[in-house]
Amino acid sequence: MDFAAIFTNALTEIVSPITASYALAALGLAVHFGYAGLLNFGQAGFMAVGAYGFSISTLTFGAPLPVALLVALVASVLFALILGIPTLRLRADYLAIVTIAAAEIVRYIVTTNSLTNVTGSANGLATFERGFYALSPFPPGDYPVGPLNFNDRSLWVTLVAWGIVLLCAAIVWALMRSPWGRVLKGIREDENAVLSLGKNVFVYKMEALVIGGLFGSLAGILFTLPTGAVQPANYGSELTFFLWTALLLGGMATVFGSVLGAMIFWVVLSLTQGILLGLIEAGYITFLSSAQAGQLRYILVGVALMLLMIFRPQGILGNKKELAFS
């Protein structure tokens, strides 16, 4: 077994823009659930709205990068408003069901054959990333960093992705230390108490939903940039649940928990894959096919999510005393 390769792969996962995208989407969930107590099970929908908003405006309308970005962000704000208006006054579990339903609606709509010329239906869309890479300051070539190999494209997208994650994390950090964040944490525990103190709870919840949704939508764009392709099948409810796993792993009401969680999530997936495949190749494991090895990892994800929730709900970075489940 080639341990060096397995560890290099794991290291690659840590810094990969996909991990950054997971971290950002999970950070959005941290704002939603960790700080505001909003059970958003439709983060994949926000990601899809971002990715498709960006790619459709680029491909169908020929929009330049800033406009496409703006369209994606505005679309996700609208999506948040549509979700929030009917549900933010209801009990937490209603929001959960409505958000998961809305995310599926988005997925069905971008998959349907009736819109193939806009969305590419099941095949998705591709080659909308040129505007992004055109901005890259790196001349074509290879840029090895330690054991990791980047080329001009991957270096650019990696730097931008993590730059955005850091920026958003800083925003969340600042917000949660402000009086605004205090109101949000109050709402997470007891809306009526906060209402009785004269705060418009609905507005705060909506603001939190929009901010987390914007992060989700940005994450959705980042998710597509490395390959320059978007495919509807990636935006199912499982994506949302993986994000939840990453969030809960790191700590739901922490700023860097989502980053740490996303990294661990991908590293563990990569390591188990590498080790299992290595064992299969070397003939130590004969009862698994390589496809089954891949599936085994997701069984582990499910079990890990259960065990986390049961035994360490505050995650790695969280403080149990501040853990508030509504």
């Binding site: 579990d93 959960a96 649940f241 994800v301 890990a304 999510l305 259960m306 709900p313 509504s326």
Partner: peptide, 13 residues
């Protein structure tokens, strides 16, 4: 809510 999330983990598994 934690129970709901446990059920999600169970569903995935």
């Amino acid at each position: 809510v934690p129970m709901m999330i446990v059920s999600i983990g169970l569903a995935l598994a």
